[in-house]
């Protein structure tokens, strides 16, 4: 009975949304890249780079929004590397993506260690604070669950809408969806396949990095090693789960967040019977299960992973 009660508390849903926030950024970023036909396995490293760069910028006195901007730029930079390797050069997207993950992760750790050689406990910044919106934050249930989150969570939710609008309501989004399905069609209509794909990968990577920055600037207040902990890979799976649609991406991220928040609470309720690792495993197991159900029917962007070269048909 208590287990069901957990699901009815505002506190639980607030935690679910908090856990989901970096994933929302990540899935949106990944789906923008993939809609244009490029798988971005650099996501795990880009998360790390965003977390590190954003935090360090704030620590050096750039201000919180300055930090978000720096994180986005760092993500865009690594996205550009991945884009150049995979789009005009047409290299394997898998290999390049994993390379970018290794590079971005190592470079972040290296920068952190070089900048702070003698630090034993990670320095802290003052992170984004929960919003206090008049009236809305005082609403029962939905107030604490939704309107008392930090500004970055609000930004994530806004980005779901913005991404959806751009993809489905603007000429740019039309071109991005077309280039991920049949780049020759885009070329034949006089648009640049390379520019669209590179642009989409850079923009998507910038979004991923902001997801990373959420961890060091909102969820926590410091950067430490290993803090991304596979969140990037979860986003790649969630992208398939979401069928490359922003609305479903939000749903998938929330589902994962809810599983994660649930297992933490479950541990304290019935933790005595089972080792804690079983609970930690739960959201991932459920993700795999959800993926098996959804992904078998998934309608992949047709040109995903397929390099396209100018003048070759």
């Amino acid at each position: 009975m208590e287990i069901i009660d957990i699901l009815l508390t505002a506190n639980f849903w607030a935690a679910a949304l908090r856990i989901a926030t970096p994933l929302i950024f990540g899935v949106l970023g990944a789906l923008i890249c993939e809609r244009a036909g490029v798988l971005n396995l650099g996501i795990e490293g880009i998360f790390t780079a965003g977390a590190m760069a954003g935090w360090m910028a704030v620590w050096l006195g750039a201000g919180l929004w300055g930090g978000v901007l720096v994180a986005a730029l760092a993500g865009g930079f690594f996205g550009l590397i991945h884009a150049i390797l995979t789009v005009p050069l047409g290299l394997s997207q898998h290999v390049s993506g994993i390379g970018v993950t290794l590079l971005a992760t190592s470079l972040s750790y290296f920068t952190y260690r070089t900048a702070l050689p003698d630090v034993t406990s990670p320095p802290r910044i003052i992170p984004f604070q929960p919003l206090d919106i008049p009236i809305l934050s005082d609403l029962p249930f939905i107030g604490p669950a939704l309107f008392s989150q930090t500004a970055l969570t609000m930004l994530a939710l806004v980005m779901v809408f913005v991404t959806g609008w751009v993809l489905y309501r603007t000429p740019l989004g039309l071109a991005i969806r077309a280039v991920g399905d049949n780049p020759s069609a885009v070329e034949a209509q006089g648009l640049s396949v390379y520019a669209l794909r590179i642009g989409a990968v850079v923009a998507g990577s910038a979004l991923m990095a902001v997801g990373g920055a959420f961890l060091t600037m909102s969820a926590f207040d410091a950067f430490f090693f290993g803090m991304i902990n596979g969140r990037g890979w979860v986003c790649i799976a969630l992208t398939v789960f979401a069928s490359w649609r922003p609305g479903k991406a939000l749903l998938g991220a929330l589902l994962f967040g809810a599983f994660d928040a649930f297992q933490v609470r479950l541990q304290t309720e019935v933790g005595a019977f089972l080792p804690s690792q079983v609970f930690l495993m739960m959201p991932y197991l459920l993700s795999i299960a959800a993926l098996i159900i959804v992904a078998r029917k998934a309608d992949y962007p047709k040109a995903l992973l397929v390099p396209w070269f100018k003048g070759q048909r």
Binding site: R169, T170, P171, L174, A178, D181, A188, G190, L191
Partner: peptide, 29 residues
Amino acid sequence: VHQHFTLAENLTGLDNIVLGTEPIFRLRR
């Protein structure tokens, strides 16, 4: 008109036709 059609299959016929004919940075279509 190429032998292998250059159409994006996930878009409508109208979208395929209009693609590239309108200014790309617009808030609406």
